[in-house]
Design a protein around this nucleic acid. Sequence first.
DNA 1: TCATAAGCGAGACGGTACGTCGTGTCTTACG
DNA 2: CGTAAGACACGACGTACCGTCTCGCTTATGA
Lengths: 193, 193, 193, 193
Amino acid sequence: MSTSLRGGQAREDQLLSATLEVLREVGYNRLTVDAVVSRAHASKATVYRRWPSKSDLIVAAFMNATRDLPAERDTGALRGDLLGALEDLLDEMDRFGDVMMDLLGELGRNPELASTIRDGYIATRRQNLIGAFARAKDRGEIPADVDVQPLWDLAPAVIFFRRYNMGEEVDAEDVRVLVDDVVLPLAFRFSAG
Amino acid sequence: MSTSLRGGQAREDQLLSATLEVLREVGYNRLTVDAVVSRAHASKATVYRRWPSKSDLIVAAFMNATRDLPAERDTGALRGDLLGALEDLLDEMDRFGDVMMDLLGELGRNPELASTIRDGYIATRRQNLIGAFARAKDRGEIPADVDVQPLWDLAPAVIFFRRYNMGEEVDAEDVRVLVDDVVLPLAFRFSAG
Amino acid sequence: MSTSLRGGQAREDQLLSATLEVLREVGYNRLTVDAVVSRAHASKATVYRRWPSKSDLIVAAFMNATRDLPAERDTGALRGDLLGALEDLLDEMDRFGDVMMDLLGELGRNPELASTIRDGYIATRRQNLIGAFARAKDRGEIPADVDVQPLWDLAPAVIFFRRYNMGEEVDAEDVRVLVDDVVLPLAFRFSAG
Amino acid sequence: MSTSLRGGQAREDQLLSATLEVLREVGYNRLTVDAVVSRAHASKATVYRRWPSKSDLIVAAFMNATRDLPAERDTGALRGDLLGALEDLLDEMDRFGDVMMDLLGELGRNPELASTIRDGYIATRRQNLIGAFARAKDRGEIPADVDVQPLWDLAPAVIFFRRYNMGEEVDAEDVRVLVDDVVLPLAFRFSAG
DNA sequence: TCATAAGCGAGACGGTACGTCGTGTCTTACG
DNA sequence: CGTAAGACACGACGTACCGTCTCGCTTATGA
């Protein structure tokens, strides 16, 4: 019940919120620790005591904001599960789009950051998709001899590519086409197409 | 035939080469304009006269190095064309991997740079794939009612995602699986699978 | 009693000392802020936080070094007072000669600097001379109807002119001649010449 | 009668005029060769072919503008000669005041410039004063045993000091006082005062 | 009359210093 | 003790200016 602990937690949240705000406003490159510190009425020492570098701070802010996993949905059919999980992805992209783009770009420059993001963010999101395929196979929806592993990342890959590399908008209809015309036919071997 | 133009060109090339060298050695973040300038026995003014900022310089160096398009291959069959084009992509990734990763990350921060890269680099590479599908359709290899557009970026998307977002190595065998198990079945509706 | 203030003061003194050293070694024109900074094991920001430009820094270094006024001498006779004050001037010229020459030249280019130097340096030195004449008049050494004001700057003017405009050396004997043959005859109306 | 020579001469004058204009507008420090060149619609090579450095150019411009010596006046009396010569000095100060101040300051930084200015400018002006004293002595106006050499520079020294070091205005009345109350009494040993 | 050279405007260039900014460390004083 | 405030060393940035250089163009003499 110590105030200092809760205070510490609360302070941490304030710092991360301020970081996220600044991140949204000016992007990774132009974010300065001074700006964060000034917005949070904090001191640089307070920041650096917790996160040893600017990029740690930013990653922490991102991880904190995306801490809540989208709930795993079980609609009873692969199609519904996929559409649900991918819509969650789209949602998060809408809310953290530019920040994610920023961070994705940072991955190549910062291996530590990369593994944090991959293990802490991407991997957790992927679980929902892996789960969807696993349930479909358990249900017999997918033929037993189909290797689903290559299908896991198909839809996210295309969504990421279009959005982050090609700079295109991706909406629910695009996702539906992707699921119905690409992923499901491969999963079902056209038997249900 | 003017020497001045070629002289200017030559200087530019030297500067871009030096930039690329430094880029390869220390990466985007630790590249300094001073290092480039010193390697090229040039002056900062000479650099900044051409490229208004460090990132412009780096992009120019990348675009210059990847100016030469991989030749379009026509093997007479979609499979061969795809494998060829994707191997070229893999090759280029091997040669410019880290730099590309760096630049990809820059896209989200710099819209101008993004369109330069997209129009000048990605779009040109995509042409080879688009061409491969078009020829296959002309030959009747692909059923007339199959919409090939969603298939263009499928393979590159997966390759980019695995390599740049997931940090995995991608080799020729992975590409072969991708083509044989994902792209071609969709293109041929399993008829030739 | 705050250590921070003294600490700040101390740092300032170190910076100004380093500045003066470099100034002595290479002169105003070839002094670089980087050299100062490197000698003081300081950072450019630390310098520029205090003095907005290189010339401000140099002036501050000069003012700091000449902060200590030469003691006012009272020998009981005008001649002794004058010779004493002028010898002090010569001394200071020997110690800060080139720097003063440098700064003198800066006066015409920088009005703010000019008033700083005039009020903070020249005016304080002149006080000793003014005092000498005042005491002489009080003692009755100088006839009551002699206007001494034109005599105040006579000797310094000649010394400055010879040294800084004509580039000649000026020594104690020159000063003696100046006092005995020019200033005193005018002050005493030749009565005591 | 060659056009090239006259052209060369004319071009030289244009360059020096442009230099003087810029010098008047922004002063020695902020004058840039590029600004001069641009104003004269000339090329840097054209300037540097004639004057090897910026300061040479500026000195040349000054020397060119003050090429015309004030005529030596012979009023038949020392007082008139002195007042005449000093008024000429005041005139020139009015016309080239700031530039002279600038250059004077530069003397301490640039020995070559210093001797050029001293021999080419100051020395020539001093001739008029030296001549005035010589004629007065020849005429018997000044006692034969008076050493006039210390008197030569007395008035100019005071005028320079007041104007350039103290930043005061000096007008004809000041000069008159200087002559009547300082120089002439010393020259005449008060016999004519 | 023409060509060959010399001077020129334009402006790129190497170099050097400037003054600014950001990071991560560290110190001071307060609560 | 943890914190706000902010100074500090380091190092890169992008700008400005100097003095050198190269480029074509124009002009002006000498074959």
